[in-house]
């Protein structure tokens, strides 16, 4: 009998994902599921799906799931956590959801130090609605609603969530990672698992921002999209730990 050398994490449902070819949501889903498996928390985990391309995540994770209104996932997560404090609650949100319409819910769940885990997928564009400007769209970036490139004089500048939340006293752990290379994916895996472990240990609000691609709406081949992320997004959104209240402890950040 052959040895199984690679398999789907248990927390990930055995169903085809609906994402476009080259989309990195699949990688990030896997990392989340691996973290749930590693910590052995699937049976007491409840995920909150948001509005955007990742809306169907409720079909992709084996744990119980709640689908939230656009931007409100942290508020729904707050309710779930306050109702069952021993459960592990995570949200999975895109940039439009978390950094535009849901800014208040994001900032205030951090300010309250809600003991929840937020996976924030930043691909600098609205995917599901067909490629409009996001709060994280880069200056000069062409989208359906910035057809001549995002003009900072006219459309303002991007919102840097990790930098912003690092000023919020209630937040525990903030890290920005990317999924454009094996090295970065391995770091993303560590960060996501840590964000879940923090919650298990009652350490409070953890958010991991994952720089991600959108080949379809960026109008690029998947490989070229990875390249664009490296050349444009990472310089604007530097990777790293922006806050770690428990950094001095063993198992704190690198």
């Amino acid at each position: 009998m052959a040895n199984t050398v690679f398999q789907k994490p248990h927390a990930l449902c055995d169903v085809p994902l609906h994402y476009c070819p080259g989309c990195t949501h699949g990688i990030i889903h896997r990392l989340v599921a691996e973290a749930i498996d590693a910590l052995g928390i699937e049976g007491r985990t409840v995920g909150v799906a948001s509005v955007g391309c990742s809306v169907f995540t409720y079909n992709y994770f084996e744990c119980d799931m709640v689908q939230a209104a656009h931007g409100r996932a942290p508020a729904v997560a707050t309710g779930l956590k306050r109702a069952e404090p021993n459960n592990i609650i995570f949200t999975y949100q895109g940039d439009g959801d978390l950094a535009a319409i849901g800014t208040a819910e994001t900032v205030h769940s951090a300010a309250r130090g809600e003991n929840i885990t937020i996976i924030f997928v930043n691909n600098a564009i609205y995917g599901m609605t067909g490629g409009q400007m996001a709060p994280t769209t880069l200056p000069g970036q062409v989208t359906q609603t910035t057809p001549y490139g995002r003009d900072p004089q006219y459309a303002g500048l991007p919102v840097k969530i990790c930098e912003m939340l690092s000023q919020v006293d209630g937040a525990t752990y903030l890290e920005r990672v990317a999924v454009d290379s094996v090295a970065h994916i391995n770091q993303a895996k560590r960060a996501i698992e840590k964000a879940f472990r923090n919650q298990v240990e009652g350490k409070g609000f953890s958010l991991v921002e994952v720089l991600s691609t959108c080949p379809t709406n960026w109008g690029k081949e998947p490989a070229a999209a990875m390249e664009w992320l490296r050349e444009n997004m990472i310089p604007y959104y530097p990777l790293g730990v922006y806050k770690d209240k428990y950094a001095d402890e063993k198992g704190g950040s690198k």
Binding site: V46, V66, R72, A75, V76, T78, G79, A83, A104, H108
Partner: peptide
């Protein structure tokens, strides 16, 4: 739990969370 939310919108969505967990909210 008494929670003063950041807005009416957040408050009703917290209600959604609590109710999703099967509790009277």
């Amino acid at each position: 739990t008494f929670l003063q939310a950041e807005s009416e919108i957040a408050a009703i969505n917290m209600v959604i969370g609590v109710s999703s967990a099967g509790k009277r909210a």
